[in-house]
């Protein structure tokens, strides 16, 4: 069964080969970007990107933008 997650506010269908946060980032082409990941309202530290993705997880990918 495909996992459906909430990704940055949109419903997103996770392909079967993506099992972890790191794999999701790579799948999205974000593997080498400067970013921060939040899963179910909890901030993931970099060494926790091997966390598995579960159905209905709420994932936010956040980054730095220009600001004063």
């Amino acid at each position: 069964m495909k996992k459906m997650i909430d990704l940055n506010g949109k419903t997103y269908s996770v392909v079967p080969e993506v099992a972890t946060i790191q794999q999701l980032l790579e799948h999205l082409g974000l593997g080498d970007r400067i970013l921060i990941v939040e899963k179910n309202k909890e901030i993931l530290q970099k060494d926790h990107y091997d966390t598995p993705i579960k159905d209905r997880d709420q994932i936010e990918i956040i980054h730095f933008v220009g600001g004063g």
Binding site: K10, R33, I34, L35, I62, H63, F64, V65, G67, G68
Partner: peptide, 20 residues
Amino acid sequence: LTFAVRRMDIFEASQPNFLE
């Protein structure tokens, strides 16, 4: 340098990011 923290627009084509 100051920056703001925002949700990434991951569904748009890859946008350049100044910090990077």
